[in-house]
Design a binder for these strands. Sequence first.
RNA 1: GCCCCCGUAGCCCAACCGGCAGAGGCACGCGACUCAAACUCGCGCCAGUGUGGGUUCGACUCCCACCGGGGGCACCA
Length: 822
Amino acid sequence: MATDANLDEGYDPHAVQDRWLPVWDRLDLNRAGRRAGAEKRYVLDMFPYPSGDLHMGHAEAWGIADVVARYWMRQGYDVLHPTGWDSFGLPAENAAIKRGEHPAQYTYANIEVQAESFRRYGISFDWSTRLHTSDPEYYRWTQWLFLRFMERGLAYRKNSAVNWCPNDQTVLANEQVVAGKCERCGAEVTKRELTQWYFKITEYADRLLDDMQQLEGKWPDRVLLMQKNWIGRSTGAHVDFAVGDRKVSVFTTRPDTLYGATFFVVAADAALADELVAPEQRAAFETYRAATRKLSDIDRQSTERPKTGVSLGVTATNPLNGEELPVFAADYVLADYGTGAIMAVPAHDQRDLDFAKAFDLPVRVVVDTGEDDPAVTGVATAGDGALVNSGPLDGLRKAEAIEQAIDILAARGTGEKAVNYRLRDWLLSRQRFWGTPIPVVHCPVHGEVAVPDDQLPVRLPDDMKGADLRPQGQSPLASNEAWVNTTCPTCGGPATRDTDTMDTFVDSSWYYLRYPSQGYEDGPFDVDKVREWLPVDQYVGGVEHAILHLLYSRFFTKVLHDMGMLDFVEPFASLMNQGQVINQGKAMSKSLGNGVDLGSQLSQYGVDAVRLTIIGAGPPEDDIDWATMSPGGTLKWLNRVLRLTDDVVALAGDDRDVVVDKVVAKAVDEVTRLIESHRLNVAIARFHELVNALRRSADTAPKPAGSLRDGVTALAVMLSTYAPYTAEEVWSRLGHDVEAGDSVHDSSWPTADPELLVDDAVTCVVQVAGKVRDKLEVSPDIAEDELRALALASSRVQEYLGGKEPRAVIVRPPRLVNVVPG
RNA sequence: GCCCCCGUAGCCCAACCGGCAGAGGCACGCGACUCAAACUCGCGCCAGUGUGGGUUCGACUCCCACCGGGGGCACCA
């Protein structure tokens, strides 16, 4: 007995799946290079992380990319649709600690489960491309790339306060701190002073911003916007103040307000504050600094919090007017943005005004914006206006004054135009085990020494498991003496290995480059193969990577371009973000207990019904509420397709009906354009229409067998992109010998005869005062004059005109006439 | 606080450059088939596009304001 009574009669999707899957495996239809000589296309999903089996979200993302891949194959392109796993990372390590295993066990077991699920789900992967970032053959090249970055000064080590996740016991990149919490586990992030490896992504800030021009219209606007905001370019000036005999520079976007500066603030946790503090203020400063360091990022970044600070007991000299400004240390100034010090202009900056109020400092208006005095209202005025109280700047507008101020500063050698970025360098060290080891040796004589290329990979030890991996605040590798102790590649003397591993986002920043030459041993990738296949024509993935993976990959691509290894500067020509699959209005989660298991959906409705339901639910980027979907209805429709097929196959003869031919041509034409424009859900509606039309014709004499057979054939080919199993079944029932290699997945996309797309007559709407009053059947190429005359001759139009002359007649042949009464 | 996106039948969604608001589906109702039901086939049902204004011969579409929902950034000088 089937679980669903409906399945007893009609379509059994499982039998169809079991029938075709082994045949496809044998036919090997998805191998890149199969259509040698044809134009190449590269379709890619953001590769999966192997935690457990596939879920509904995977079903959507890979379903979407698979439609594109299969569509391009039908169109005759040579398609690369590869797969791999982003297989380093914390969940495997945590599972290993819990189970007393090596992380590789969990990782590779899950990969096998997911691989089998992908296969069953009918994804058109070229399995020969398969890679795993945790394989030594892969991470060897991650290490190799790191060393190239190091040679170019793009990987460096520095000591600074870094984001620390107390739960995962590791540092985090800025991009992995979301609203003050660890992106992975949600713990509140704290700060730690540590020496860590960084990638100098800030050196590419301008290019990351400027090259986005190439992506406009091809990437979702919101992703581009998020990246733009994240990079956060600000233009302004560096202004040099004098503190005693020391020069202290600040960054400001408002050099025009220099005359309004009434105090000066240094970030309390910046080294600069420690260096400037006067002896009599040192005790107070250190107390304050200690308190600052205890704050979590969340507390510290709250704008609600009252301003706090402490005087450093020194003054800074304003380079424009020579005024001596009191210097404070405060936590509202960030140590790692700009120079870690600011000139405070309370009249025109809200934060400075709040501080001035708290410390009873003067507020001096220097831009007359026409608003009330900030000293009275407590609201800083940041808008445009005329400069006042500003010596040579008086009377200028804001923009002019900014330029003028910079000119004056530059002439005096006390400042210059400057650009600053919100983007910080990418902190890549992680104090965890299951990642790519950083290929550096620390020698007491020679310092940081790169491991020579011919000694790569620096392998992870395979004798560590379970409790050995427990986080201790430093990498578990540090406790493995046999691994740590080595010799210096330069002098041969005793040395130690760097015990940190790389952020897994390093692994995923270049994987798409290796697919075309997976297994290549002379470099991370075969430059010629990359030239053939890259950039990726269609990338598909979640919007959660808008500023993590996507920004990092763009950075890597630009560096590799500069190294002469790539011809292009943007890795992903087109990007689609799929939405989330939710349930009953909420994200699926264990705590809510509203999870929908993909496996059980597949066993209940079959692969094709689930694929069609997910993709048909709405635009790819929209969230899908599974509670509102009916895969059962989709299964019934697939059943309908098969019944139609059987009925049509049973018809004898080759009779044609031009009406049917037109319906088919129109469906082909529209589906083609809909898939091209990524409106994948609407294409499914066209499938329904086509089936309805063919059904009607098959039920009505004279039943044009030839036209119907062609219609079902076109349907099978188009449907092969969404519902690969059912389409193959239809194809087979139409008489194709799939086992012998005549698969629908090796067929060609149907073409629509342009003559069949032309309508003999179209309906012209005739409006009077914008309201539809009549309809005319006219020739599609009717002339404007003729149509006007026809419309005005309409008795209904005359009726509504009531004998008056029309004031205007708007004619848009052949579809519309609007008569405007006088 | 700043910025972005979205509001169309009971529900999910279509509607090209501004030109007949409805393609498709779910649910529901009726009919045919059936001893009856299920399945299947056919037919039907329901909104004037969140609200208010503006531009236009004509607005779901463009502009402004507001309401509601979602998202991004958030002490970045």
